[in-house]
Computed example of a mutant assay.
Amino acid sequence: MNEDARSRAARYRLEPGADTAGPDETEDDAPPPRRLPEDQTLWVDQQIRAAMARGEFDDLPLAGKPLPHIDTAAEPDWWLKRFIERENITGVLPEALQLRKDDAVLRDVLDTLRSERAVREAVEEFNRRIVAARRQLQGGPPVVTQLRDIEVEAAAWHQRRAARARERLAADPSEPTGPGPIRRAWDRLRRRG
């Protein structure tokens, strides 16, 4: 690099007071210094070399390996798909498609809940989302997910819960059946209040 190029590249460094005007100059009177594209290229090269000297590029994921081939003509949004996979991003589907996914796993989600009240609230929230998606005017795929009947879902939840309890009892007969004394006392207190 010759001396003229170095001096042009040095103009890009930020120095204290370099951007302030002199005592008899105002900001309107002094035009900013003209920068050439070559100067910026030199400055960028200096920054990259300095980062390499500090070792900031040593632990990159593909260090020492060839870059993977990407057919951009066949897959124009390849970078977006890779970003979603790498960052494990979920919930970016249109609401109609997200509702279909959530509908497929709703039974499993309900089975993780511990009370009938929580099951009813979860089904109500799911139904609210369906109604809100049907009202939207933003376009996208149509909402074909059906509303869930809260009473039917609560009854099915009780049946699945009882079936799991029977399976646990069959696997381990020494396990106590029915709610324990603390649970029975809690249920009595809830019925009073």
Rank of each mutant, 00 (worst) to 15 (best):
D71P: 06
I70D: 02
P94Y: 02
A30I: 04
P16H: 12
W186P: 07
R183W: 12
Q47K: 11
G180M: 02
D28G: 14
N88C: 12
D111I: 12
P179E: 11
E125N: 15
E95I: 06
T41A: 15
L106F: 08
V152M: 02
W186F: 01
R148M: 01
I182A: 00
A122M: 07
D108Y: 12
Q47G: 13
E56H: 01
R160I: 01
T90W: 04
A154G: 05
L189T: 04
V123H: 05
V44E: 01
L80W: 15
R192W: 06
L147R: 07
R183L: 11
G64S: 01
R128I: 10
S174H: 02
E27H: 09
K65R: 13
D19E: 10
M52V: 14
R114F: 10
R191H: 05
E167S: 09
Y12N: 03
D39G: 14
R183Q: 10
R161C: 01
Q138G: 06
A185E: 10
S115A: 08
R188C: 03
D39L: 09
E175C: 04
N88S: 10
A53K: 11
V92R: 08
G64A: 00
D58Y: 00
L113G: 07
E25N: 02
A162L: 10
R183D: 07
P33M: 07
A163E: 09
P37W: 05
Q146E: 11
D58Q: 13
G180V: 12
A165G: 05
L14Y: 07
R134N: 07
V123P: 00
P33E: 05
A155G: 08
L36E: 12
D58I: 08
I84Y: 11
A5K: 10
D111A: 13
E27V: 06
W157V: 14
V44Y: 11
E38A: 07
K81Q: 13
A122Q: 04
R100Y: 01
L97K: 12
D187P: 08
A104F: 10
I84P: 08
P181Q: 00
R191K: 06
M1C: 01
P61D: 04
L60D: 01
N127G: 09
A21K: 08
T145Y: 06
V131T: 05
V123K: 03
G22K: 11
N127C: 04
A122W: 11
R120K: 15
E125M: 14
E56F: 01
R129C: 00
L67D: 15
A132L: 12
P32I: 00
R184P: 01
E85R: 00
D29K: 11
L113H: 08
T177G: 02
S7Q: 14
P76C: 10
P141E: 03
I182H: 03
R100V: 11
D59S: 14
P141F: 00
I70H: 13
P94A: 11
W78P: 15
R114P: 14
A122K: 04
A5C: 12
A163S: 10
T145E: 07
